[in-house]
Simulated assay, not measured.
Amino acid sequence: MHGPASSGWPLVALCAATGVYCLLRMRSNVEEQRRAAGGEALMGFGMAAMAVPAAVFSPPSWTWPGYAVVFGAAALRALWAARTGPHHLHHLVGALAMVYMAVVMSAAPAGGHADGSGGVPLVTGALLLYFAGYVLLTGARLIPVPAAAGPGLAGAGWGDRPELARACRLSMGIAMVAMLLTM
């Protein structure tokens, strides 16, 4: 996180655009869509803020513990929601990954960069494997299936289209992999 500007700005734009789309999805008529979109909007905007290049903005020292608290609360909410179904576990892993990155960044030197000289820590490696697998699985689910396109989707609003929600999740998964690679 807070890597070079060449990769930082596209990551900021991708995450912010995803966050905006997720906010718009919160207007859905489907309650589950609204609930998931709120957490995804928080993730998108949080990831965008964490990805701002350090050359442009070095956040104050209290920012990282603040991120840890916000995403810790999001993790608790996802854990509570996971009792209704396993699909909330991904939100839990994502929120915990954000807490982990915030804690690592709070321990980093004043420039806001983690010291990568010690190799890839076990937690970072495990999160990279999880999110890389998630990206591959979600990307495969975006491949159109002729039988899936039918009259049921014709009346759905753009915020209720499952392929758009999957594309949103895919972009955040890719961004998470990019952010973890810079740890």
Rank of each mutant, 00 (worst) to 15 (best):
W9A: 07
T63G: 06
A54C: 09
M50K: 02
A48E: 03
V104L: 15
S58Q: 15
E32C: 02
V30G: 03
P144Y: 07
M183A: 14
G155C: 10
G173K: 01
L137C: 11
M1I: 09
L142S: 08
I143C: 12
I174N: 05
L181S: 14
R77A: 15
L180M: 00
G139E: 09
P65N: 04
V103F: 08
G38L: 05
W158H: 08
A75R: 00
L14A: 15
V93K: 00
G66N: 04
A165Q: 07
L14Q: 09
G38R: 02
G133I: 02
M183S: 13
A68T: 06
L127I: 06
L23A: 08
C22D: 00
A73I: 05
W158K: 09
L11Y: 06
A167P: 01
A110Y: 03
A140M: 14
A82M: 09
R25F: 11
Y100D: 12
H88C: 03
I174G: 06
E163K: 09
T124Y: 10
L137M: 14
R35K: 14
A54N: 09
A154P: 07
P4I: 10
R25C: 15
M47F: 08
A54S: 09
L89A: 12
V30K: 11
P121R: 02
G118A: 09
A140E: 11
H113M: 11
L23F: 04
G155R: 15
G116S: 11
P151I: 10
R83K: 15
S58Y: 04
I174R: 08
A37M: 02
T182V: 14
M47W: 06
P4D: 15
L92H: 05
D160Q: 08
L170Y: 00
G85C: 00
R169L: 13
E31Y: 05
A51E: 00
A82T: 05
V103T: 08
L164V: 09
A51T: 01
T138D: 12
A140R: 15
A48N: 03
A82P: 03
